[in-house]
Design a protein around this nucleic acid. Structure first.
Length: 582
RNA sequence: GCCCUUGUAGUUCAAUGGAUAGAACAGAGCUCUUCUAAGGCUUCGAUGUAGGUUCGAUUCCUACCAAGGGCACCA
């Protein structure tokens, strides 16, 4: 359709003897201003120093029948010039056809942007021995959504989770466990994991406040690398298993499953080897091995790759990880999703990788998202003022459970619905905004169940579904026949169903998905779905969809079905489930 | 000090250089004998400051102000 309109404009401009390179077509911000519009008159007027409004009117006049030998094109209802823009209104047929297309294709919205491409997405990255905090929830929501969006765009997505199972943070947690003792045997896995997270915070406090503790923790860290202490090995293996199992329970609720789990303990030696083999890139300084990135780019800075104790830092591990990813899967694009606090250091690592292996570096893409912040300041698991992702999830789901307690659901259904809706509330609040921006977490407001929210979208879907259930019972099948009347019937008032905003938005879904994929930005989909759901709810509010006496009723059912398909696909792309009832 | 993000209604977020800057929450007021009121309909209310580029700037450039992050052995 876009092409048709573009060609039409080209044809007219040619007739008017106007040269133009690109024709920029967009959807006007307001549906009242047509389905497509172009600012071509303004750009041309600028070049030729003529009046844009007059030119727009001239173009429109030339597009209309009875002027010259151009016929009014069959696919347009109306063309108008307004404020220098040229607006195109599509014919009803186009919208009805688009509804048919949606009903024929349950995967409506897919595109070919990444066809035959393999894209690895690394996200979530919680560390064993530390709590699963809100930041992990955020990275998970974004990474999962991006994975689904690239899949919907033809890519083979490979989900990877990179976890720091070695390093000072582990030593701190183990120091805490040695000092304060192990948790009771009969506690649940999440309880044990929570306990380990608390002791990590204590270990960290001790590390900063107490010199002896610092020394002890450094020793534990060294022993962990060497695996030289039987007792520490035992605690380590146990704690690693417990925290990883606790994470799995959270992934299950969130609806994520990974193809790969990478661990720092495994990539560290690979990274160390890379650093040793590239002496031309790295330098020795104060007993450490460092990389002077500012030599290559003044905006970058120096970072330590091997510390003065001979232990590899995160930078080195990251090099090892990259190598491992490419050797295992050789992705066309290797995406890493993290919070922006890692943005600067990641650029340094990327620069180092560029010197070591330019091919790998060119395929890496680091997506940074904002931080989840408290009004009172930054959350840090080191300080212990974190709201864990787990507790937030439980709270969100709990609030839903309270809300549906009187509904006609079995206990099993209640649990499932409250989980699906609770997760939706959280994920939507993360995904509705630009990836880059911080999210200010407010316990009162951040989890929203009404208005601009995940549950609102789910509710709209459940409503549509309920209409469709009723339609099935009453044998009201989706249909279009009534819209193909004899020519004379066109005049019959009330025969045609006016095209609503729902149709005008539905056909745009694939464009939105495409844009989201191109920019790796899920929020376009989130915003689109809200607009669509709002249009449907308005339609629903003043339309009786199932009505045996209404010849348009089959079409209304078809429209409802099309809406339910699109909203379900859209929610899927956000990583949100669409319950049939809620 | 240098570098990276970000400044839009009271609050949380939108707006490929375009039209009257959109929503939601909060506030005021309607609305369930119709398919789910987690809904619908009214209403009040905003581009950090100062310049610049442009027919046109929330968007691009410069400076300033403010918030967050990073800047050598944490991740």
């Amino acid at each position: 359709m876009q092409e048709k309109i573009e060609n039409l404009i080209r044809e007219v401009l040619k007739k008017l003897d106007i040269e133009v390179k690109d024709i920029f077509l967009e959807h006007p911000a307001d549906l009242k201003m047509g389905d497509f519009s172009t600012n071509v008159a303004m750009t041309v007027a600028k070049k030729n120093k003529t009046n844009p409004k007059e030119l727009a009117e001239k173009i429109v006049a030339s597009l209309k029948p009875g002027f010259g030998n151009l016929q009014k094109p069959g696919f347009l209802e109306k063309i108008e010039a307004k404020n220098g823009f040229i607006n195109f209104y599509l014919l009803q047929d186009f919208f009805v056809d688009s509804i048919k297309e949606i009903l024929e294709n349950k995967n409506f919205g897919q595109n070919n942007l990444f066809v035959n491409k393999k894209i690895m997405v690394e996200y979530t990255d919680p560390n064993p021995f530390k709590p699963f905090h809100i930041g992990h929830l955020m990275t998970n929501a974004i990474g999962e959504s991006i994975s689904r969006i690239v899949e919907f765009s033809g890519a083979k997505a490979i989900r990877a989770n990179y976890q720091g199972d070695i390093g000072p943070h582990v030593a701190k947690a183990i120091y805490g466990l040695l000092k304060f003792g192990m948790p009771d045997e009969d506690k649940s896995i999440p309880q044990k994991a929570r306990y380990i997270g608390e002791l990590y915070a204590k270990g960290n406090d001790a590390y900063e406040a107490d010199k002896n503790a610092k020394k002890e923790i450094d020793e534990i860290n060294q022993k962990l690398y060497d695996r030289s202490d039987e007792k520490i090995n035992g605690i380590y293996d146990w704690g690693r298993r417990v925290t990883l199992e606790a994470f799995e329970e959270i992934y299950k609720i969130l609806g994520t499953s990974f193809n790969y789990y990478f661990f720092e303990s495994l990539v560290a030696p690979i990274g160390e080897k890379i650093v040793q083999e590239n002496k031309n890139v790295f330098e020795k300084s104060d007993g450490a091995v460092i990389f002077h990135a500012e030599k290559y780019d003044p905006k970058l800075h120096t970072r330590v790759f091997i510390n003065s104790k001979g232990l590899p830092t995160y930078e080195t591990k990251e090099l090892g990880l990259s190598k491992m990813k490419f050797e295992k899967e050789n992705p066309d694009i290797s995406i890493v999703v993290t919070a922006n606090e890692q943005g600067e250091y990641m650029k340094v690592v990327q620069k180092a990788l560029e010197l070591i292996n330019p091919e790998y570096a060119s395929k890496m893409k680091h997506i940074v998202h904002g931080m989840m912040r408290l009004a009172s300041g930054k959350m840090s698991s080191r300080k212990g003022n974190v709201i864990t992702g787990e507790s937030l999830l439980l709270e969100s789901c709990g609030q839903i459970l309270e809300k549906i307690k009187d509904r006609d659901f079995t206990d099993e259904e209640k649990k499932q619905v409250s989980e699906e809706v609770g997760v939706a509330a959280l994920k939507y609040s993360i995904l509705k905004q630009n990836i880059g921006g911080d999210i200010i977490y407010d316990a009162e407001k951040s989890i929203s169940f009404e208005g601009d929210s995940g549950p609102y979208l789910q509710y709209s879907y459940a409503r549509a579904n309920s209409v469709l259930e009723k339609a099935k019972k009453e044998n009201m099948l989706p249909g279009f026949v009534f819209l193909k009347p004899g020519f004379g019937d066109l005049q019959k008032p009330g025969f045609f169903e006016p095209i609503s905003e729902v149709e005008k938005l539905l056909y745009r879904f694939p464009e939105i998905v495409f844009k989201s994929a191109q920019e790796f930005e899920p929020h376009y989909i989130a915003n689109y779905l809200i607009e669509l759901a709002r249009a449907f709810n308005t339609y629903y509010g003043n339309t009786k969809i199932i009505d045996k006496d209404d010849s348009a009723s089959p079409y209304k059912v078809a429209l409802t079905l099309a809406f339910s398909i699109v909203i379900k696909n859209g929610l899927y792309l956000l990583g949100i489930k669409a319950p049939e009832r809620m």
